[in-house]
């Protein structure tokens, strides 16, 4: 049971990350390749405040959300004038920079590479409660994302993605929408970072490398771009799939490589036969 709660909590965390990434990539067409940077900011803010300064974890989560949103806004600013491939490269760069910051400047508990010893309030204390709270927050994020994408704002985001120059000609600055949604996604990802810290009890910089960012891309690629259900499905299916490999009874040294290879094959197959993912509403072909 403990392990199932843990899995459910982990899935909830990644659902939030995937929802946020889908807002910027799937709906707005911004090639965000380094989302782990904001995940890390959220995790470090929440864990740092709680472990080192004794701040109540609820407040620390709120701080994670706000700080990550602000950091996202600040880091997007210089990138707004570049597009496409170069924007994607720059977001990779962001991931590297933030990894370095976590690695060299990130706070750590004596004798470890990262932070542990979170003091969690009741809502997060037991594994069952932690799962319930995290899942409820994920559900809330899901509803928020659905509200956004179904609104005039969501329509404008898709217009930014489809033809930013045409939207500008209609009197609306695409960069305004990019800024707005990037900050929202950064905030949500930061919240997920805080929850991630509570899920794992321990964070260090290696959690926020490019691997994590790429995992997010895989989740939404498999689930489907521009689809809130796609974000959920991708995460659930891949984490469950990954987990089920552990029960195949393979020698443990084969599980890792096998996971990697199957993931890779799944992705390749999907891109060849079903580019829109499971329930996606958009593909980058056009």
């Amino acid at each position: 049971m403990e392990h199932l709660y843990y899995l459910g909590t982990l899935i909830s965390v990644w659902i939030i990350v995937a929802l946020a990434a889908n807002l910027v990539i799937g709906y707005t067409g911004m090639m965000a390749m380094g989302q782990a940077a904001y995940l890390g900011v959220g995790a470090y803010v929440a864990a740092g405040l709680n472990v080192l300064l004794g701040v109540n974890f609820h407040l620390a989560l709120l701080a994670a959300l706000l700080v990550s949103g602000a950091v996202a806004a600040a880091t997007l600013w210089p990138l707004l004038r570049i597009g496409g491939f170069y924007f994607a490269l720059a977001t990779l760069g962001l991931n590297f920079v933030f990894f370095d910051i976590f690695h060299n400047l990130g706070p750590r508990v004596e004798g470890s590479e990262g932070l542990h010893g979170l003091k969690l309030p009741d809502l997060f204390a037991g594994s069952g409660a932690r799962f319930a709270t995290t899942a409820a927050l994920a559900a809330l994020c899901f509803l928020a994302c659905r509200t956004i994408v179904g609104s005039p704002l969501g329509r404008a985001l898709r217009a930014v993605r489809d033809r930013p120059d045409a939207l500008a000609a209609l009197g609306k600055d695409p960069r305004r929408y990019q800024m707005l949604i990037w900050s929202v996604a950064g905030a949500l990802t930061g919240l997920a970072g805080g929850l991630y810290a509570a899920t794992l009890f321990y964070i260090d910089p290696t959690l926020f490398t490019l691997d994590a960012s790429i995992l997010v891309l895989v989740y939404i690629g498999v689930g489907g771009l521009a689809s809130t259900w796609g974000s959920v499905l991708g995460v659930v299916l891949l984490i469950v799939f990954n987990e089920s490999l552990r029960y195949l009874g393979l020698p443990s040294q084969y599980v890792g490589p096998l996971q990697q290879a199957l993931y890779g094959l799944l992705l390749i197959g999907l891109m060849i036969f079903r580019r829109r993912g499971l329930v996606g509403e958009y593909d980058f072909r056009e």
Partner: peptide, 13 residues
Amino acid sequence: CRSFQDVRIFPFL
């Protein structure tokens, strides 16, 4: 407001 010679519709809208 201008229109474009090459349309520039939002294809997925």
